[in-house]
Design a protein around this nucleic acid. Structure first.
Length: 260
DNA sequence: ATGGTGGATATTCCA
């Protein structure tokens, strides 16, 4: 079972790139972020033609998440619980049947939070606390749970080419890093760190200032695994080569192989 | 050096 996450930065502008990658990578489930369209604007047919079921939680202009799955959806839940007044589309959960039982997969787009000291940073931290509360409850079910997404958090200095560039940025603030650590501390495994201690592994390179050419990247797209999912972890990968394609997203896909 | 790039949308916001 191959499960991937990818911030696509606009699915309508990126549909040809997305289809090319899906054809190449052959994932079973894909978590997409920043689809930047309402549900009706999502080009579902392009993926259905490749054998995928599609579930979206869109929004006009910004944000928006989606799930693609070769397995049928048993259940879909849209929106992160904990704030009925939050209208930003950043969370979708799919439930699937696997031989051992149920598999839950979330596509999440954590708030950027810049600039710090504003309501945007407060919203980021509040959203992370809501995620922690939700995840703690989900872990009680003791099922394989995969949280794939753009976390907008650089956990450690080794997750940035030049950490000094991110001083004062919401992605590298101590509060942001601590909040993600608190979620991991519930019992989740950062899939990539389960397989390597290496630095220099990035998932995002800014469009500006030749960041890709200089390999000035950061690792902010993560796959977190519940204990029951970690039990089945086979491998982790970053499809870095996709960043060099024409009309790329500024993020690349991250994927896990699970023996489910 | 206060720029640089890109998407969606509307002539600016967000990242």
């Amino acid at each position: 079972m191959k499960i991937a996450t990818w911030n696509i930065n606009g699915i309508r502008a990126r549909i040809e790139t997305a289809v090319a990658w899906v054809r190449e990578a052959q994932p079973d489930i894909v978590c997409l972020q920043e689809i930047k369209t309402v549900d009706e604007g999502f080009p579902a047919v392009a993926f259905e033609d490749l054998g995928y079921n599609v579930a979206t939680h869109g929004q006009k202009g910004f944000n928006g998440v989606a799930l693609l799955s070769k397995l049928p959806f048993d259940e879909v839940n849209r929106g992160l619980p904990g704030d009925d007044g939050d209208e930003q589309s950043r969370f979708i959960e799919g439930v699937f049947s696997v031989p051992s039982g149920a598999l839950r997969v979330v596509s999440l787009y954590l708030p950027n939070g810049n600039p710090i000291g504003t309501e945007k940073f407060a919203y980021k931290l509040a959203w992370m606390e809501r995620l922690r509360t939700w995840a703690a409850a989900r872990l009680l079910i003791e099922e394989p749970l995969v949280l794939g997404g753009d976390y907008n958090v650089i956990l450690e200095p080794r997750d940035a080419k030049d950490p000094s560039l991110w001083t004062g940025d919401a992605l590298f603030q101590p509060e942001s890093r601590q909040a993600l650590r608190a979620i991991e501390a519930l019992g989740f495994t950062d899939a990539l760190r389960a397989t390597t201690d290496a630095g220099g592994l990035y998932t995002f390179w800014d469009y500006q200032a030749g960041a890709w050419q200089k390999d000035n990247g950061i690792r902010i797209d993560h796959v977190l695994l519940s204990p029951r999912a970690t039990d089945h972890l086979v491998s982790v990968g970053i499809d870095k080569h996709v960043r060099a394609w024409e009309k790329p997203s500024d993020h690349v896909p991250v994927f896990v192989e699970l023996s489910l």
